[in-house]
Amino acid sequence: MDAAWIGALTSSALWQFCMHIALLSGTAIGGGMIAVMPDVHRLVVETNHWVSSEQFTSAFAMAQASPGPNFLYIALIGWQVAGWKGTIAGSIAVALPPALVCYAVIRLGSGRESGALQKAFRRSLVPLSAGLLLASGWVLANTVDDSWRAALMTIVFVVVLLRTRVHPLWLIALGALLGGLGLL
């Protein structure tokens, strides 16, 4: 075995990124990857400077506007870290660990609805998830809404989403339009 080769791999940004994402995705109870977004932001923006804050929020917004599950915003962050390899490896790192945990749990046969403690656990995750989601929104808002117009637009969109049943995709398209016209 060539030790230098292994050393180069394990010190690469791609490897570091994937290992951290795998650890996060395998432990993210109560809201999945959206809820641990502040940790992902710290990893790729604040600690390692692999992507800028603007690239991070752009990746999140583009993933929201694309088809597929929300957690795949990691695939676009992966693109920023290490190109197409980052997308592929990042997607595996985000989907495989929880799938393995889930598989192990159902194989071990604890996939039965049982016990008041399990129910209490499930119910106690709901306020945790709410707090986690709001924290994610807050961390993102701090990087995006640096102009008062962008902050105002976020607030208006929150109100619209709470008051109406409009599809979120329309608001993202409207945001792109208003931003593109230079109104933000």
């Binding site: 917004a61 929201q64 709001l134 929104g137 976020t154 989403l161 945001g175 792109a176």
Partner: peptide
């Protein structure tokens, strides 16, 4: 345009919470 999309995506996360 991406700034505008991001502001909307932030609103979406906040609204869900």
């Amino acid at each position: 345009a991406l700034t505008g999309m991001s502001a909307a995506a932030v609103g979406l996360s906040m609204a869900t919470g």
